[in-house]
Design a protein around this nucleic acid. Structure first.
Lengths: 168, 168
DNA sequence: TAGATAACCAAGCAAAACAGTCAAGTATTG
DNA sequence: CAATACTTGACTGTTTTGCTTGGTTATCTA
């Protein structure tokens, strides 16, 4: 599980796609303009997103990309994994390599932590983020009190921070 | 919030420190051997960890590094932030830059997500990772340099990837 | 059918980050 | 004082990022 700006770009682009999903296929040029990501870089990212069955492409005029599943069924971890092509290179693969065992020990601990992070991001869908977006926009346009309430809810969810025992 | 092998190395090294905290100062050479991280790379990492008040150094013979706080009070997010020196360069800093507003929206969403990940890792302490019964037992076994057979058994448990849900 | 559109593809490139080396220091202990 | 062990800084090679250029295909529309 890596987390770099590359994954950030991918998530941002996918969010843009989710937000405008009602408009039919969205061209990369549109996303490029809105999100200020270079077109060719988007092309590279979407090639990977497509290979990982996250988006569908429609060629020709009026074409573009669509989410392959509902935004409720696409999770952040998938997107990040898709563009990072995570080839997790743990030095000590398998039990045979480590004589001292200590290497295995902390490696294992890290792997575990990495899995937890992954599980965490696997529980956040694009729809979750879009829903927030709309809450935020509505709040900005209309009432401040609503915004505060929504923020409170979010923060509570955040502060919870509990790792679901199921992931372990 | 970035998450790369660099942060992984740092967390691994800090874990090693936490595990052997009862032995007094731990030299980087020891960590280097156990965790298979180059000494000079460790030096760079620990320079940053020291600047961020996560470790203390003891110079001279028998010297090394110690955790500056209890392992219960050192959180994964701190370690990763320390070595990554996160200067998050969001393109649209402040609201003024974005005409369409959409850029701001998704940037905001990402920031929010990033904060969530950060908050998540801020809730996991070094002690949390170390204080798993099995792991602790394995560590003790390794320290005592028990028979190879025992090691094999332990390693098999490790490779299994099962963690008792009770730990977190 | 011609042409516009936009996905697809490949090669390459500059800058940054990563991972590590090397060498000359400085502080501490025995 | 000498050995140990951290400190500092400069330097190097590799990989990843983010992007450019220059195409080719597929598809829609006039």
């Amino acid at each position: 599980m890596r987390l770099t700006t590359k994954g950030r770009y991918a998530v941002t682009a996918m969010l843009d796609l989710a937000i405008h999903s009602d408009r039919g296929p969205i061209s990369l040029a549109d996303i490029s303009q809105r999100q200020e990501i270079s077109l060719s870089y988007l092309e590279q990212l979407f090639a990977k997103l497509r290979k990982n069955a996250l988006v569908n492409s429609v060629r020709g005029p009026g074409g573009g990309y669509k989410l392959q599943r509902d935004s409720e069924a696409i999770f952040i971890a998938e997107i990040i994994d898709a563009v990072n092509e995570s080839v997790d290179t743990t030095k000590c693969r398998g039990a045979g390599d480590c004589q001292g065992g200590e290497t295995c020990l902390t490696h294992y601990l890290w792997e575990d932590l990495s899995e937890q992070i992954h599980g965490f991001l696997q529980n956040i869908s694009l729809a979750d983020l879009v829903a927030r977006n709309e809450v935020k926009r509505i709040a900005e346009n209309q009432d401040r009190k609503q915004s505060l309430v929504a923020d409170d809810v979010d923060l509570k969810v955040l502060a919870d921070g509990q790792i679901p025992a199921t992931t372990l």
